[in-house]
Design a protein around this nucleic acid. Structure first.
Lengths: 344, 344
DNA sequence: CAGAGTAGTGCAATCGATTTCATTCCAGTA
DNA sequence: TACTGGAATGAAATCGATTGCACTACTCTG
């Protein structure tokens, strides 16, 4: 039950292992006759070469690491799918790592990935990274960040969205529906994306000459629980607002739950916009109006530019910004209005 | 920028590579003095050994393959998380494969995994497998199936739930609430789990002396779209029923959408039970009553028994059946009733 | 004190591929 | 005819670890 090696193939085909290796890697340095002869044996034996041995010799493992906070989070699941699909098509395997936004875990995973001689890394963002990632870059492992990288020191490829203008899509929509008191459920403050989205929010307000009220901005993790609690606290605090801009769909969904629990109707009493457009957003009631992020493309693009790096086709730093768009559904009442209008 | 090898460590520490290797693998065949000396150098150089070389020599890659239909499906995402967590703790890396229940893709992935010399495989189930999996088993790769395996020919470890009794949990609940016309939204008919759950349904009916009506059973994929369409068709067909047993939460959620679209209230007009207890189930309105599957444990147990295989601690086939339980929320009206009672 | 046993160490072969370099063979050219 | 150059092939070194075997230097025993 020993696994076959190119040596076995070589013997049967009556050639050397060098030749078999050349055939298997499509080298032009083989005559057609020999090539056919070898391929015949390969097929008959159903032989497939040992990738580990190849990796050792070539110092390329055709493996990449994918670090995500948590694959259970549908946002990262879609990204992962995008990465894996394209990676597989290009002959790469992806090692999945859930680091839970935990610096210790992150360090441990990075170490393991290094030992495994991964060719590259895709890092989906807790935004905490700086520390450990730097080691990787020093070790010369091509890395792509799925997040805007603000530090100009860190010379790394990135794929991201334009958080600022994406947020404006959401806020402008609310404003166009007549809202002027718009609460914000922000993600963690240390995240670039939270900051960018908040900046977009302020910009939209300013353009419509609405005062920015800091007391309407609260922040927490991108979870339903946080959405629920933040909105509840906000209402109980007596803050006045007619709409909520949540920086993730999970938060928005939690917020809607919270509002309903307080006997406030969405969208009649309070409008809610989300962010991400995860599948769940169109399954809840009311269906969520949200800013769609192209998660799958975020992942597939990340792999694509990583691949370019690996093939040494690009040496300058690349930064790709993908488009977002507003998906109007029911949670802001936009459709209600048009209904009314069409009745009038 | 060359990566360090044990040879470098050996030279600096003034010992042979054998000794360094022994120290790194905790062999007792090294004196305390030497061990300390070597470890000091290892630490100073921040050296970590090349896992690829080790894999080649030891013929163990400390890597496992994880085949799931689609990581975006929250059911499989949780399983994957369970697998990865425990695998990582045991020093294994997991290669993620999304095969989309597509036999061709499956074959391709299996081939790649074999080439990569994976130590084991966890196969989460489309139920179609038989074909390609057999090759793996023949190749001697330890495999764990996340599904009941009915074929007694296939001698493979499995982790699963008891679909039959799990379904009874759901159906009995509906019956106890007075329902006697219970429609079934079944998963694909070729799946063991669909069959098992249907058997449970029939058993529950029989025990309450309710006639089984085949026209109340419809089937399709485990998706919201299918749930939506199947229930819509069922209602339009004029079938009479007061409750729906959906074999997955996604279907149940789709069904609720469909019923609401038809102006039927859930649970007042029609009760709905789901299956799985994915996170989303408590986020929709009404909150879904469902049979909880321990997805994370399914995954972690799968790795656990795979590990036992790898350590050669178990040679007999293992089959683990995990417990399910009913989670009563709002979609069946059970809470409505108690509310009324407490008012009376 | 001789001989046996054992702990600690190193040499060298090995895992299964890739690749450099040398070699052979033959066509083309002067 | 002799020589050059290119195409096709193989021998052998190599990637970075592990490990069987040989060897040394002790300790222990009778």
């Amino acid at each position: 039950m020993r696994r076959l090696t190119i040596k076995d193939v070589a013997e049967i085909a009556g050639v050397s292992t060098s030749t078999v290796s050349r055939v298997l890697s499509d080298s032009p340095l083989v005559s057609d006759d020999t090539r056919k002869k070898v391929l015949k044996v390969v097929r008959e034996l159903n032989f497939s070469p040992n990738v580990v041995a190849r990796a050792l010799k070539k110092r390329e493992s055709s493996t990449i690491g994918l670090l995500v906070p948590d694959i259970v989070n549908p946002y990262f699941a879609e990204i992962a799918r995008g990465v894996e699909d394209i990676a597989h098509k290009s002959g790469y395997s992806v090692v999945l790592c859930n680091y839970d936004a935990d610096t210790e875990k992150e360090k441990k995973y990075l170490q393991v990935l290094l030992q495994r001689q991964i060719d590259g890394l895709i890092y989906a963002g807790s935004g905490l990274l700086a520390g450990s990632i730097v080691n990787l870059l020093q070790a010369g492992i091509p890395t792509v960040l799925l997040d805007r990288d603000t530090s100009e020191i860190l010379d790394v490829d990135t794929v991201c969205i334009d958080d600022e203008s994406a947020a404006q899509l959401a806020v402008d929509h609310l404003i166009s529906l007549g809202h002027r008191e718009i609460a914000v459920l922000s993600g963690p403050e240390y995240l670039n994306s939270s900051r960018g989205r908040l900046a977009g929010y302020k910009l939209s307000l300013a353009r419509s000459a609405i005062d920015f009220k800091p007391e309407l901005v609260v922040s927490g993790p991108f979870t339903t629980e946080a959405g629920f609690e933040l909105v509840t606290k906000l209402v109980r605090s007596g803050a006045r607002f007619t709409a909520v801009f949540a920086m993730s769909d999970m938060m928005a969904i939690g917020a809607i739950k919270g509002l309903q629990r307080l006997n406030l109707r969405v969208p009649e009493d309070i409008a809610v916009v989300g962010f991400d457009n995860i599948k769940m957003s169109e399954l809840i009631t009311p269906e969520l109006t949200t800013v769609a992020q192209p998660m799958y493309e975020l992942g597939s693009q990340a792999f694509a530019i990583l691949k370019e790096r690996l093939d040494a086709r690009h040496s300058e730093r690349q930064r790709i910004v993908l488009k977002t768009r507003l998906i109007v559904r029911d949670s802001c009442g936009a459709n209600l209005r048009t209904d009314k209008l069409s009745l009038a």
